[in-house]
């Protein structure tokens, strides 16, 4: 205790030793803030705008969880993490959840002891090249210099792809997206590779986006999703079902515009269960009855979040593709709220 008081006197007052055994959900409620790990800046997914306000697709997931748990979408402390620091930050408890385009893989789930709570974006690793290079397939890239954004599964996928196709390349590993852009635009590398969504986001910031094309090959499966620590199932459930609520809301036609009206006048029992006017789903999670309603009200349903941050109307211009609802031929399929 003395130690923590000393620290408290020296630095931020809010460092009092917390009870170690308490669940993350209780911690978050007691703290009144959700600590959410995001990237250091990838436009469309998580990046601070000119006023320092975090915006983006992953950010919306954080805010939705905060709205569901705390009732306030702004009660989020965004912790920028790099590829190197994100897992330590989560494992050591610095952040409560990580929403940082992180690929769900076996070893991360099993060996690193994390719990992926779903997939909020189905992605795959792609390649971007300047049009003037005249390349139409990744298999033509023999001998090319490839800029890679490090810290995710990209390096491994890339090595596997070139190895499998028996062609050579020269990797240029780069820490941040901004530097990768710089090198790619200056011609220090022929190809830039990262998740296809990231490529689209990056291309959107170029002066002349039309001069660059994304190659058709998608060389990997990258299911990106939020994750939490292993072993805290209550908290994992909260994050998982908040995400599911956003997806289900779209499927059921609940949006931020009509959620208040739907909550009071719906005849659809699943909508009623989702919005807490029927059943006990909220209290089962340890939350208030209108948890999902608050998340949808403030952030919109999955489709709205997608359209606002990365959809075709935005400079990033991603189409729904795999990320359409299962009813529209996509992969989004939320378990039922029952």
């Amino acid at each position: 205790m003395k130690k923590s008081v000393l620290f408290g006197a020296l630095t931020v007052a809010g460092l009092a030793a917390g009870a170690a055994a308490a669940g993350t959900l209780d911690d978050v409620k007691a703290r009144g803030k959700l600590n959410c790990g995001v990237t250091t800046g990838l436009v469309g997914f998580a990046a601070p705008d000119a006023n320092g306000e975090w915006k983006g697709f992953d950010v919306a997931v954080c805010r939705a969880v905060a709205a569901a748990v705390l009732g306030d979408p702004s009660a989020v402390e965004f912790v920028p993490t790099t590829g190197k620091t994100r897992f330590t930050a989560l494992a050591s408890g610095e952040i409560d959840m990580l929403a940082r385009n992180t690929t769900w893989t076996f070893s991360r789930d099993v060996d690193l002891k994390f719990e992926f709570t779903g997939v909020n974006y189905y992605d795959g690793q792609g390649f971007m090249v300047p049009k003037e290079l005249g390349v139409s397939s990744a298999k033509d890239l023999d001998g090319a210099t490839v800029c890679i954004q490090t810290g995710t599964t990209t390096e491994l996928n890339l090595a596997d792809f070139f190895r499998a196709n028996n062609i050579s390349y020269e990797p240029v590993p780069i820490e941040t997206n901004a530097e990768a852009q710089q090198q790619y635009l200056a011609g220090a590398c022929d190809v830039y590779t990262t998740d296809a969504s990231g490529l689209a986001a990056t291309r959107a910031t170029f002066e002349n986006p039309g001069e660059h094309i994304l190659l058709p090959e998608i060389v990997s499966k990258e299911p990106l999703g939020p994750l939490v620590r292993h072993g805290d199932n209550e908290w994992a459930d909260v994050v998982r079902w908040t995400l599911n609520a956003l997806i289900t809301a779209e499927e059921l036609g609940v949006s931020s515009a009509n959620v208040a009206e739907m909550a009071s006048s719906t005849n659809n029992p699943e909508v009623a269960r989702l919005l807490g006017t029927e059943g006990e789903l909220g209290s089962m999670l340890g939350l208030e009855a209108d948890w999902a309603k608050r998340a949808i009200e403030t952030q919109g349903n999955y489709g709205e979040i997608f359209a606002k941050n990365i959809g075709e109307e935005t400079p990033i211009g991603l189409s729904r593709g795999l990320n359409a609802q299962w009813t529209d031929g996509g992969l989004l399929y939320s378990p039922p709220f029952r």
């Binding site: 630095t11 931020v12 460092l15 030793a17 917390g18 170690a20 308490a22 190197k84 620091t85 050591s92």
Partner: peptide, 22 residues
């Protein structure tokens, strides 16, 4: 700094989130 960033957190008592600045 890597130690501060990725290791030091493991050396504090469980549950104390000593912030990165400190």
């Amino acid at each position: 700094l890597f130690v501060a960033n990725v290791m030091l957190a493991y050396f504090f008592p469980p549950g104390t989130g000593v912030d990165l600045f400190l």
